[in-house]
Simulated assay, not measured.
Amino acid sequence: MTEERLEGFPVVVEIPVLWGDMDAFQHVNNVRYFRYFESARIAYFERIGALEFMKEKGVGPILGSARCRFKLPLTYPDTVRVGARVPELGEDRFLMEYRVVSEQHRRVAAEGDAMIVFFDYRGNAKASLPEEIAERIRELESAR
């Protein structure tokens, strides 16, 4: 059931909801959702070799903006599956979308997106999206 809610997301990570993730309102704190997104984002970067590329060339991704739409409060115990996909490539950036699905409720708990900008870490300036990385993204997205 959760698989169909994550259809179209080529990268999916599974994350347990921890007791300590909850706040005084007895549900998972909003900050944790951004950590879920981060885990999926890093898994996506690993799949396309962006982190290795950054080590070699000094050019890599940096988070330009992020947002979240909360749909269902999560509580312990639960496990979430978090999907990441890239529906849009630009000259120096791409949009990454996320979806968090609760295993316990079998529903979408949150959706979000982030603008990922490519950055020259050695020159401390924005950089073009390397064609090699863009091609890896297109391959991963077309495989879904």
Score class of each variant (00 low, 15 high):
Ala134Leu: 03
Val101Tyr: 08
Gly60Lys: 08
Leu6Ser: 05
Arg81Val: 00
Val13Met: 02
Glu52Phe: 09
Arg85Pro: 08
Ala24Phe: 05
Cys68Leu: 02
Asn124Pro: 01
Leu18Gln: 11
Tyr76Gly: 05
Ala114Arg: 01
Gly8Glu: 03
Glu4His: 07
Met115Ser: 01
Lys57Cys: 08
Glu135Cys: 01
Met22Val: 04
Asp23Tyr: 02
Arg69Lys: 07
Val82Leu: 04
Asp113Ala: 06
Glu38Ala: 07
His105Val: 01
Phe9Pro: 07
Glu88Asp: 14
Asn30Leu: 11
Leu140Asp: 08
Ala143Lys: 15
Ala84Leu: 13
Glu14Gly: 05
Val108Gly: 00
Ala110Arg: 02
Gly8Leu: 05
Phe94Pro: 00
Glu103Val: 10
Thr2Cys: 03
Gln104Val: 08
Arg69Val: 15
Arg35Val: 12
Gly83Ser: 12
Asn29Asp: 07
Val100Pro: 12
Glu4Ser: 13
Val17Arg: 06
Val86Thr: 14
Leu18Ile: 00
Arg136Pro: 04
Ala50Asp: 07
Leu18Phe: 09
Lys57His: 13
Arg99Ile: 12
Ala50Thr: 14
Glu91Phe: 07
Arg136Asn: 08
Ser39Glu: 15
Ala43Ile: 12
Phe9Thr: 03
Val80Gln: 04
Pro10His: 14
Ala43Ser: 13
Arg47Tyr: 09
Arg85Gln: 13
Arg41Glu: 00
Tyr121Glu: 05
Gly58Met: 11
Gly64Val: 07
Glu97Met: 13
Gly20His: 01
Ala125Asn: 05
Asp120Ser: 01
Glu141Trp: 06
Ala143Thr: 13
Glu111Thr: 10
Lys55Gln: 15
Met54His: 01
Glu88Tyr: 12
Val11Ser: 03
Leu95Glu: 13
Glu7His: 08
Tyr98His: 08
Gly90Asn: 03
Ile133Met: 14
Val11His: 05
Arg69Ser: 12
Gly8Phe: 11
Val17Ser: 04
Glu7Gly: 10
Phe94Tyr: 15
Val13Trp: 03
Glu14Cys: 05
Tyr121Ile: 00
Ala110Ile: 04
Thr2Phe: 06
Ala43Cys: 05
Ala40Asp: 15
Glu139Lys: 15
Phe34Met: 04
Leu95Phe: 06
Ile137Trp: 09
Gly90Asp: 04
Glu46Ile: 09
Pro77Lys: 09
Arg5Tyr: 08
Met1Trp: 13
Glu46His: 14
Arg107His: 09
Arg85Trp: 08
Glu97Pro: 03
Lys57Ala: 08
Glu38Pro: 04
Tyr76Cys: 09
Ile116Cys: 09
Asn30Ile: 07
Ala66Gly: 03
Phe45Trp: 11
Arg107Leu: 05
Tyr36Ile: 04
Ala134Gly: 10
Phe37Asn: 06
Thr2Leu: 10
Leu18Trp: 06
Ile62Phe: 00
Val12Phe: 01
Phe53Glu: 14
Asn30Pro: 10
Ile42Ser: 10
Glu46Ala: 07
